[in-house]
């Protein structure tokens, strides 16, 4: 269940429109926009997959100039990887190659 903090740079001429589009996503909180067009945005998703898809979707919105991540928290996920509860989907390690310890 990752949480990310982002600075999203907006084109000020269309920032209202962009923020309206952001508000349609319940996973997104916008905490404010400064005079240069930088918005503080927090994204809270159920899965990393969802986080990644959402950030990509945001980047495609006209008027979103860049999306810079400044904070990332994924403790639950890491704990689950550590405990073996979830296995990262891209893991092709040397399974089956462990053999007798000859030391």
């Amino acid at each position: 269940m990752p949480i990310g903090g982002f600075v999203v740079v907006l084109d000020l001429s269309v920032s209202d429109e962009v923020l309206k589009q952001f508000s349609q996503f319940p996973q997104i909180d916008v905490h404010g926009v400064n005079e240069e067009g930088s918005a503080v945005v927090v994204i809270d998703t159920e899965t990393s997959d969802e986080m990644e898809q959402l950030t990509r979707q945001l980047q495609k919105i006209d008027g979103v100039l860049s999306l810079g991540v400044t904070y990332f928290h994924a403790e639950d996920e890491i704990e689950k990887i550590e405990s073996g509860e979830i296995k990262p989907s891209f893991s092709f390690g040397r399974k089956g190659e462990k053999s007798e310890n000859c030391s």
Binding site: I3, H31, E36, V40, T70
Partner: peptide
Amino acid sequence: TAALTAASYIGM
């Protein structure tokens, strides 16, 4: 925390 971290970078 995530919001504060992002905000600190732009002086908000």
